[in-house]
């Protein structure tokens, strides 16, 4: 087992809250501090300097109480909690996340302003109504420590051609025909190898126009392999489409049933396979 050490340091903008939440907010501040999270206290900022404080943080934390944070105060001015919530929401994106905590959910369960905030949740906004500040801060730390996969720089290529070592003879023939008119990167998979294929393939596919999985004998391998890399690269949302192409010498139409409805696949003679690949590439480029 591997344990997560949560080494990433980040700064949280602890927004002002309505007065009924003063004690809770203060308690949360201690918990955040104990979790070694750096805090910018929203109570220390005036309305005009909130934006700068938000921008200096990696995320913001908002504590909701009984009072609607958007209800103007007695003098008709926006509340500080409301101003800071609005500012943080406008900055919310992949780099700046927003955490909303409703620790008194039982009291607030019928509160329409909480419901409207929940309805307005957008991407990179996280809502929690668990009363424990520990659970809330655990969630914050977890979300803020998710590593965006960082693609290593690979040589951009048109076709990333993948096959099992079992089919290396015929695969090399296809590769030789393709490389004359397209930029091709090939990779033969050997099970006894120490190479971490998984991350390498994901990274290289991201730098390729299309991915091609070829097989002749290795039908048992090709199906799970193609599915696995389709999944690892984001399935239908992936920028790099996958083609599974099988050599009709040993593969049969029935073999490709497994791919039906998921990705494109062909069963063809060896000499026609480079053409199939080229057509698939052209089709992708036309889109």
């Amino acid at each position: 087992m591997v344990i997560t050490l949560y080494n990433r340091k980040f700064t949280v903008f602890l927004a002002a809250a309505s007065p009924d939440m003063d004690d809770t907010r203060e308690e949360l501040k201690y918990v955040l501090d104990n979790a070694s999270i750096e805090i910018i206290d929203g109570n220390d900022y005036k309305a005009e300097s909130v934006e700068a404080a938000v921008l200096a943080s990696d995320c913001s934390v908002h504590v909701l109480g009984k009072t609607d944070i958007y209800t103007p105060d007695g003098d008709g001015y926006d509340t500080m909690a409301g101003v800071q919530f609005r500012t943080a929401k406008s900055k919310c994106n992949k780099e700046f996340k927003m955490f909303v905590w409703n620790p008194v959910s039982t009291i607030n369960s019928t509160n329409s302003y909480i419901n409207s905030i929940r309805r307005d949740v957008v991407e990179n906004t996280f809502y929690t109504d668990k009363p424990s500040p520990i659970i809330f801060v655990e969630d914050i730390r977890n979300i803020m420590n998710v590593k965006e996969s960082q693609s290593q720089q690979h040589e951009p290529t048109d076709i990333f051609f993948l096959y099992n070592d079992l089919d290396s003879d015929t695969a090399n023939g296809i590769y030789n025909m393709l490389k004359d008119f397209q930029k091709v990167n090939k990779l033969g998979i050997s099970m006894s190898s120490d190479v971490d294929y998984n991350s390498y393939i994901s990274d290289q596919l991201a730098d390729s126009q299309i991915g091609v999985v070829y097989y002749n004998y290795a039908g048992d391998w090709a199906v799970p392999f193609a599915r696995q890399i389709w999944k690892d690269t984001g399935g239908n949302s992936s920028k790099t489409p996958l083609l599974v192409t099988a050599n009709s010498e040993h593969a049969k139409e029935d073999d490709i049933k497994a791919f039906k409805g998921i990705m494109e696949c062909t069963v063809d003679e060896q000499l026609r396979i480079p053409l199939d690949i080229k057509v698939f590439l052209d089709k992708k480029n036309q889109k």
């Binding site: 099992n164 070592d165 079992l166 998979i189 050997s190 099970m191 006894s192 190898s193 120490d194 294929y197 998984n198 290795a218 048992d220 391998w221 199906v223 799970p224 392999f225 599915r227 696995q228 890399i229």
Partner: peptide, 17 residues
């Protein structure tokens, strides 16, 4: 686990399972 090893992403003596 099964699709992962079948796909060849683990080290093993033979190429199929």
């Amino acid at each position: 686990v099964v699709p992962y090893i079948r796909a060849g992403f683990s080290k093993a003596e033979f190429n199929s399972w």
